[in-house]
Structure formats: structure tokens, C-alpha cells
Design a protein around this nucleic acid. Structure first.
Length: 190
DNA sequence: AAAAGGATTCACT
DNA sequence: GTGAATCCTTTTG
């Protein structure tokens, strides 16, 4: 696309600031992807975060440079995709939970083995399967090929709520979503 | 070397 | 809305 359209997001900012800024952003991997409609922030001093307790071989990527991918295996079955933020050494990231499919939908259908577009990327494990994200991408930059990040094409209204599927710090309202999107993994109760 | 713990998904009621 | 499966990765001894 045009070189002037670099993303207006400072990934060295705190996760809770980067997360809502990512709503509406276009994310693709090898041309397959769409608009981010749901994310969650996970910060360094957050008991629910993999970063909590300090650096380990597994989470070292999140302590590395921002704007990189942190991918991990969930429940032994699914991949989950995060974008690292905050300065190196801090340890924080934003979990991408849902995407509105826009590009390469047929590829997504094949990978997911289903036709229902609404369910192709509605969930962290699902969107990784649809985009083809695996450990291979962990530690790579998200703003360079084969990834591509483009600014939101139109103004967005961001809604907030408690995070999903965690056992600790459930109260922290660090889940962000695109208001009224039908591609959310679950609806917001507000 | 072994054990424990999931930032989930799917199917069913 | 509820319950169960499912397999890997990380962590610890």
C-alpha cells in the first residue's frame, strides 16, 4: 500500500493503551486476514499474564522488542497470537482474540473446515488456525512481511469488559472490542 | 525425567 | 448455558 500509511500506534506504550488502539486495525498474514475486532491486554504485573513472575524461556519474546509476535500453545491444541508491547525488558502483550474476515476467506474456510464466516476468526485459537499462525511466527515482527498491519479505515467505537477464560484477575477490564461487531468471540455485557 | 496446568473449542441440553 | 475433551508446553525435582 502507500508508504505514508504507517500505523499510528506506539507499541512501547502500556498494554492497556495499545490494546484499544488495535481495534479496527487490519491484520494479515500472507494476504489472509481482516479487521481486528477483539483484543485483551496482558501486562507485566498482572497475575493472569504469562509474564507474571519474570522472564522464562517461554515468555522471553514478550520481554523483547515491541511490535513482535508472541505465539503460544493453549490447552495443548490451539495457538494464541499476541503482539508484544511496552519497552524491551518490561514484559507485556496484547492477545488478538477475534478478527472480522476480509481477505483470503476461502483459504480460511479450508483451514478451518467450515463455511460460517462469522466463526472463522471468532476466538484466539480460531483466528490462528484461519490465518495459519503457528510457533513459526513467534518472535517475528508484525509490521513486516509476511505480516501486514494497516490503520483502521474508519473511526471505531471501542467497548470494554472483563477478560475471558482466565482464572486470575478476572475483574480487570482489559478486554476491548469493536462495538456491535458480529465477529466477536463473545458479546460484551454492557 | 515426570507432573501439572491451561489467555479454548465443540457438542449437546 | 453447561459440561467434557484434548494434547502440548513449561516447570520443577
Amino acid at each position: 500500500m502507500n508508504s505514508a500509511s504507517s500505523l499510528d500506534i506506539d507499541f512501547s506504550a502500556p498494554a492497556a493503551e495499545v490494546a484499544p488502539a488495535l481495534i479496527g486495525v487490519i491484520l494479515t498474514l500472507n494476504g489472509v486476514g481482516g479487521r481486528i475486532v477483539e483484543v485483551e491486554a496482558y501486562d507485566h504485573d498482572d497475575p493472569a499474564s504469562h509474564c507474571f513472575g519474570g522472564i522464562t524461556p517461554r515468555n522471553q519474546v514478550m520481554f523483547g522488542p515491541p511490535c513482535h509476535a508472541y505465539v503460544y500453545r493453549s490447552y495443548g491444541i490451539h495457538w494464541c497470537f499476541n503482539i508484544v508491547c511496552c519497552p524491551p525488558g518490561h514484559g507485556a502483550g496484547v492477545l488478538i482474540r477475534a478478527i472480522e474476515p476480509l481477505f483470503g476467506i476461502d483459504t480460511m474456510r479450508t483451514r478451518r473446515g467450515m463455511d460460517n464466516v462469522r466463526l472463522l476468526c471468532a476466538g484466539p485459537g480460531r483466528l490462528c488456525q484461519a490465518l495459519g499462525i503457528t510457533m513459526e511466527q513467534s518472535g517475528t515482527a508484525v509490521n513486516r512481511p509476511p505480516f501486514q498491519l494497516l490503520p483502521a479505515t474508519e473511526p471505531v467505537t471501542v467497548v470494554t469488559g472483563p477478560r475471558i477464560g482466565i482464572s486470575k484477575a478476572k475483574e480487570t477490564p482489559w478486554r476491548f472490542g469493536l462495538a456491535d461487531s458480529r465477529f466477536l468471540s463473545r458479546s460484551f455485557c454492557q
